[in-house]
Simulated assay, not measured.
Amino acid sequence: MTAAAVRPVAIKIDEETKARVKRLAEARHRTPHWLMREAITQYVDREEKREAFRQDTLKAWEAYRTTGLHVTADEADAWLAQLEQGNDTEPPACHV
């Protein structure tokens, strides 16, 4: 991240939260600013992954509704059990 790309943003937090951030920053030998930036970055990363998962789920549901192709829970469980045991097996075939 270049210095030109960084822009200050103000947020309003209550005094208790501000004190908590300050205590935690001191314990981590970081500044409150660093701690808040890190928290925001981690939150945005996590929420982007959650949204991507949600979009994949919606696409999968629409594909199922369109084609009817699926595997049963028992078939999926058996395949996952094989993978867990270290067996590199092909996933079960989809069926209608």
Rank of each mutant, 00 (worst) to 15 (best):
M1A: 14
T2E: 14
A3T: 12
A5C: 06
P8I: 04
V9P: 06
A10G: 09
I11G: 03
E15Y: 02
E15Q: 09
E16V: 03
E16Q: 04
E16I: 05
T17W: 02
T17Q: 02
A19M: 02
A19R: 08
K22P: 00
A25N: 07
E26I: 01
A27R: 15
A27V: 02
R28S: 10
R28I: 05
R30M: 15
T31N: 05
P32S: 06
H33V: 11
H33S: 11
W34N: 00
W34A: 12
L35I: 03
M36D: 01
E38T: 10
Q42P: 00
Y43C: 00
Y43R: 06
V44W: 03
V44G: 02
E47L: 12
E47D: 06
E48M: 09
K49N: 03
R50E: 10
R50W: 03
R50Q: 07
R50G: 00
A52T: 08
R54P: 00
R54V: 01
R54W: 02
Q55H: 02
D56G: 01
D56P: 03
T57R: 12
K59N: 12
K59V: 10
A60C: 04
A60Y: 00
W61S: 09
E62C: 03
E62M: 01
E62A: 13
A63Y: 11
A63R: 14
Y64E: 04
R65W: 06
T66P: 01
L69C: 07
L69M: 15
V71C: 12
V71M: 09
V71I: 15
A73P: 00
E75P: 00
E75M: 11
E75V: 06
A76D: 12
A76I: 07
A78S: 06
A78P: 03
W79S: 05
L80S: 06
L80W: 13
A81I: 05
Q82M: 12
Q82P: 07
L83K: 14
L83P: 12
E84M: 11
Q85Y: 01
Q85A: 15
Q85D: 15
G86D: 08
G86P: 07
D88H: 12
D88G: 05
T89Q: 08
E90C: 07
P91G: 07
A93G: 04
C94H: 11
C94G: 15
C94T: 08
H95C: 09
H95S: 12
V96K: 14
